[in-house]
Design a protein around this nucleic acid. Structure first.
Lengths: 212, 212
DNA sequence: TAGATTGTTAATCGATTAACAATC
DNA sequence: TAGATTGTTAATCGATTAACAATC
């Protein structure tokens, strides 16, 4: 990366789209692609793509385009997807269950390494090859299995407490699905998925469409 | 709304956060709140909140603050949450199952009115009070039950085809969970939730934190 | 009246788009 | 060489932050 350039959050959020689309393109047997064609597929302008990529290096060949395989490798490295991240899911409700069975994790380099719940009727179950453990052993297991990322799918009331324990146990990143703001110290990264935002904004636009 | 002002997408996406937080505040019995205090809770600057709200009208009282109950009603109306939206879920895999059981829908004015799947072993099941129907009857049921929003939780390969049928059947909005770009005509609104984006960006930041 | 807090205008910051030189 | 396409700089656009007059 060109260390003097500031990378925008928006750029980081587009890279996974490029990554995924390039993989599809590779599956189709295409070896070289232009920013024009890639942009058309994703719904992003070619300038945007070139600008985004240029923040990290020169990955293309002028007059030719981008070598698909090479670009996939480069974006993968930028996103850190070439590493192997161990993740733990805390809370096996419906959503936790769905995430525990999410197939795309492994193809992005994420390894489901632990699952926790308080409910004794769930402890001991095996989901996607991983045994559900009681949250009492959270700290112990997280350290044993070197968990990097904790996924919070517990009810909102318990989310902050779980986050505190994850941080205390040395987790570096949190992927939060509980619908509320969670506070973590600066050295821990947290990303929240808020389903009500998407649905509400859909409602907003439909209201206008139907009345205007 | 002041019709000459352009509302930014970012503003629309913050309104649901205001809405939800204000409801919590109301539950605590607080009747008046300042942008300062509300911002502190959400993690947004008070100026941001005042600016966002001001695009739609004058909801506060100078020198006093905002009346919680009134502001909830106003934001609810802006977002169209006072209406009753009928939604249908297409595809009862793990994620569809989780969404069908999502409790927050109804409190936002969304009414789960239909569920579809191709799998005959799922057809006939009742989930959260709604019977799973075969996708063959999609068009018929959508019209009967006046579905406004379709939720796509089918595998990526079938997502575009399902979207086409939803549009054809007159759905006005689509909430897509399939990890790919879906094309719809301009009069249909689509919002995509892309789980790999959040997780990948987490990976990006962790990579840097651990190596820098 | 004095203190508090909104709504709005101006200034700053950041991200996207346009243009084009470099070069394969 | 001519055509194509990148990488980069400049111009535009949009969103956030700061400042402050209005007013409860």
């Amino acid at each position: 990366m060109k260390s003097h350039i500031v990378i925008s959050k928006a750029t980081i959020d587009r890279l996974p789209l490029y990554f995924r689309t390039l993989r599809h393109i590779q599956e189709e047997g295409i070896e070289i692609i232009s920013s024009e064609e890639l942009g058309r597929r994703i719904g992003v302008t070619p300038e945007q793509i070139r600008k985004d990529l240029a923040s990290f290096g020169e990955f293309g060949k002028k007059g030719v385009g981008y070598f698909v395989r090479e670009l996939i490798r480069n974006i993968g490295e930028i996103l850190g997807l070439h590493r192997n991240w161990n993740i733990a899911i805390i809370g096996i409700g419906h959503l936790g269950w769905a995430l525990a069975n999410y197939k795309n994790f492994s193809s992005l380099g994420f390894n489901l390494a632990a699952i926790f719940d308080v409910d004794l009727s769930k402890v001991g179950l095996t989901i996607n090859g991983v045994e559900v453990q009681h949250v009492n052993s959270l700290e112990e297991v997280l350290q044993q299995r070197q968990i990097h990322i904790g996924v919070i799918t517990v009810p909102a009331e318990q989310a902050q407490k779980v986050a505190d324990r994850l941080v205390e146990a040395g987790v570096k990143g949190i992927w939060n699905f509980a619908p509320l703001r969670i506070n973590v110290p600066g050295h821990v990264r947290i990303i929240s998925e808020d389903l009500s935002v998407g649905l509400s904004s859909l409602s907003y636009f439909l209201s206008r469409q139907l009345s205007d």
